[in-house]
């Protein structure tokens, strides 16, 4: 049923030209992700995991193919349209955290609400509640460079979820964290995403995450292969 798919990809192709030679990253890719799924993308460095996430979020453009996210054909949107779409429907969690260093923890979390015109007292309280849930209460006025890596990643998770996006894209979210902290962050991400009924697509090297995922796919030679458990 079409309504169950949050992401639909058809005949997707992406390549880069380097040193005069074309390198295919993704070839003839067909894929669908169902709403509420936790999907893990595995693959070696440079296999195209991040590229696929970039294409799904609309921050990069495919050479060819069709991408539909939450019922919207990204190919039909211009740059501004894709930006507005991303702002509303997608949340990001990165390996490098990518918090804004000149905003406090709370301000970083409030930013997506403000960009979507949703910032009010109720949503502000919700943000504080989320920070509390993530164990960051008392740090909301701190600036990111005063936080540990695990704390920064938890702020990034709060920022990715606060405005209720349908799709969360996480690119190596535990790549910069120690094993224990990584586990904690994954558990938090998993529980929050499932509680809120969001869809999570995570690119990772980590096998730790395999146990949490609904589906596991590997990118190899530009194509997706599904693991069966």
């Amino acid at each position: 049923m079409a309504g169950d798919h949050i992401v639909r990809i058809r005949k997707l192709e992406k390549s880069y030209v380097e040193g005069g030679r074309r390198h295919w990253i993704l070839r003839d890719l067909d894929w669908c992700i169902e709403r509420g799924e936790f999907v893990v993308l595995l693959g070696r460095s440079g296999s195209g995991k991040s590229t696929l996430l970039n294409l799904i979020s609309g921050i990069d453009l495919a050479d060819r193919g069709y991408i539909e996210v939450a019922g919207t054909d990204l190919g039909r949107l211009d740059e501004t349209g894709r930006t507005r779409f991303r702002r509303r429907h997608i949340g990001f969690v990165f390996q490098q955290f990518n918090l804004i260093s000149t905003l406090t923890v709370l301000e970083n979390v409030l930013l997506p609400l403000e960009l979507n015109g949703l910032l009010n007292e109720t949503t502000r309280r919700r943000a504080l509640g989320l920070l509390d849930r993530l164990g960051l209460m008392g740090r909301e006025r701190a600036f990111p460079d005063r936080l540990s890596g695990g704390e920064q990643q938890r702020v990034a998770i709060a920022r990715a979820l606060i405005h209720g996006p349908a799709l969360i894209l996480a690119d190596e979210p535990t790549g910069n964290l120690d094993l224990e902290t990584g586990r904690e962050v994954l558990a938090l991400l998993d529980s929050l995403v499932r509680e809120q009924g969001r869809t999570l697509v995570m690119a990772t090297h980590s096998r730790e995450v395999v146990g949490l995922a609904d589906r596991i796919l590997t990118i190899r030679h530009g194509r997706l292969e599904e693991w069966s458990r």
Partner: peptide
């Protein structure tokens, strides 16, 4: 540039 990139990622338009 990094700040602008994050803001673009979070949905701030070019304009």
């Amino acid at each position: 540039r990094r700040l602008f990139a994050i803001l673009r990622l979070l949905g701030l338009t070019r304009r």
